[in-house]
């Protein structure tokens, strides 16, 4: 049990995917301008990350390793993630318009999020078991969501603030992200 709790703490705070590992920066900058869209993106990412870490574990364990073709990992994971996301999008679109409304626009976007592939590859690299992979993916997603929502909150405030002309727009967002990253570096050494 402690092991899983440690994985969660590690992925959320210490090895945060956005601010420490610098993965998934594109949606972090792109979808953080409004709090509502950030929350939608966060939910969708949590869903996809957890699902894709499960699928990529299964593919790796039961197809790639037995056939001794682990060098096909990257291309296989991309394929699996894309298909899973596309499949989910279509099913959700048909069965639950409300959920589709929240996640729909973001699901295809996330397929190309490097954090998703990053989680799948890191899972195999560190030799995680099934449950460990699930928790690792989920923790990464929670960390991503938390940072994205915090950042969009800050950006909404910055939008109303009197920023000097040279720093306006993306520049101040980059600086803010840098300072957030510095703050998260403070967790290093808490757990591995």
């Amino acid at each position: 049990m402690t092991e899983y709790a440690l994985i969660l703490i590690s992925t959320i705070w210490v090895n945060n995917f956005v601010l420490v590992k610098f993965l998934g920066l594109c949606p972090f900058m792109g979808v953080s301008r409004k709090l509502e869209t950030a929350i939608g993106m966060a939910l969708a990412t949590t869903f996809v990350l957890t699902l894709s870490s499960i699928c990529s574990y299964l593919v790796n364990q039961y197809i790639l390793v037995p056939l001794d073709i682990i060098y096909l990992r990257t291309i296989m994971f991309i394929l699996v993630i894309a298909v899973v996301v596309q499949f989910t999008e279509m099913v959700v679109h048909k069965t639950s318009p409300v959920l589709y409304n929240v996640l729909g626009i973001f699901l295809p976007l996330i397929t190309t999020n490097c954090a998703v592939l990053g989680v799948a590859l890191l899972n195999t690299q560190e030799g995680h078991g099934f449950l460990q992979s699930v928790f690792y993916g989920f923790g990464a997603a929670v960390g991503f969501s938390m940072v994205l929502i915090l950042f969009s909150g800050i950006r909404e405030r910055i939008a109303a603030a009197d920023v000097p002309e040279v720093f306006q727009g993306t520049a101040i967002a980059m600086i803010t992200a840098g300072i957030m990253s510095l703050a998260f570096m403070g967790f290093i050494g808490l757990v591995n």
Partner: peptide
């Protein structure tokens, strides 16, 4: 082995997605 595996899996996924897009057409 690599080529066959990739082909088989891609085909399965393709058929699956094609079937879904017909079955779950909105």
């Amino acid at each position: 082995v690599a080529i066959i595996t990739l082909t088989v899996i891609s085909t399965i996924f393709g058929v699956l997605l094609g079937y879904t897009s017909v079955k779950f057409h909105v």
